[in-house]
Design a protein around this nucleic acid. Sequence first.
DNA 1: TTATTAAAAGACAAAATGGTCTTTTGGTAT
DNA 2: ATACCAAAAGACCATTTTGTCTTTTAATAA
Lengths: 146, 146
Amino acid sequence: MFNKETQYALRGLVYINLQNLKGRRPGTVEVATEIEAPQFFTAKILQKMVRAGFVESIKGKGGGFFFDPGKPDLKLDRLISAIEGSSSFSSCGFGLKHCNDDNPCPMHEKYSPVRERIEKLLTEESVQSLAKKVYRKEVKKNRILK
Amino acid sequence: MFNKETQYALRGLVYINLQNLKGRRPGTVEVATEIEAPQFFTAKILQKMVRAGFVESIKGKGGGFFFDPGKPDLKLDRLISAIEGSSSFSSCGFGLKHCNDDNPCPMHEKYSPVRERIEKLLTEESVQSLAKKVYRKEVKKNRILK
DNA sequence: TTATTAAAAGACAAAATGGTCTTTTGGTAT
DNA sequence: ATACCAAAAGACCATTTTGTCTTTTAATAA
C-alpha cells in the first residue's frame, strides 16, 4: 500500500505524538527502536518531516521531536503527498493518465468508490488522531507501532 | 497503487484478450504500442505471464499471444500475487507485521473495510471480465488502455 | 567556557524496480 | 530446404528506493 518511507514516517510521527501526550520528547534512536525501523533512515525521514514543517525539533541535551500544539492536525493525505506525491492514491488503478467517469478504464466503476474511501480515510485521520487512539487504549498496549 | 510491471501486465493481457475476442492474436510490438508501454519491458513481462501459465504464445510468422478458452478466467488477485506478491494488498496499512481485529493498529478500524473492498474487487474481476467490458463498449472507444 | 548531547547535513552503498538490447530458439510460409 | 518471422532467453544498464555512516552544527548542563 504505502512505501517504507511513508510507513516509517507515519509510525514515527505517531510515536512522537504519543510520547508528547505523555509529556515526553523522544529522539531519533528511541523512535527508530520503538517503531522497529532502521535508525539512520528514520533520522533522515524525521529531518525531512521537520523541514516540511510537520514536526518540531530541538538539538542538544534533552532535545528531541515534538508537535506544535498551535498547528492544525497533520492529516494523513498531507503526510503521504509530501513523501510519495499526491498521485499515489488518487490516480487510475489501471495506470491510465486520463481516467474519469466520462472516460473510464474498465476497472474504474469498481475501483473509484474504493479510492474515494481511501481518500476519505486519509483526509479524516491525522497523526494526532491516531496517536490519541493509542493513548486512550482504543488499541491494545504493547506491540503497538511494531 | 500497483507498480509499473503489474500495470503493464494488466493492460497488456486485457489488450490481448480484447483482440482475441475480435479473432486476432497480437504480438509484443503491437501490445506494447497499444498500451503505451516500453516494448522490450512489455515483451519480458509477457514472457513471464506465459511461464506462469496465464496466457499462451505461438512463435514465428503469424504468431502472438492468446488466452486458452479452456482455462478459468485469470482473476486479478492471482495476476497481482504473481508479480508483486500476495502481501501487497492484504497487509497492514500501517506496516505492522501482526495486525488484526484482536490486535489492531490505530488505522485498522478504518482501513480494514477498505482493504476488504479491494480484495473483493480483485477476486471478482478478471482479465477476461475487463476485456469484455471494453468489447461491449461499456467503456468508450479510443484512449482505452492508454 | 568546555564537555557533552542530539539533530542536521550530506556522502556513500545495497537492493529493488524499471528498462534496453542482442542472441537464440522454435515456428511458419513459400 | 530455406528464408523469414516472432517469441524466449538472458545480459546489461538506469533509476528509485532503502539503508548506512561520518561530519557538522547547535543546544544544554556543569
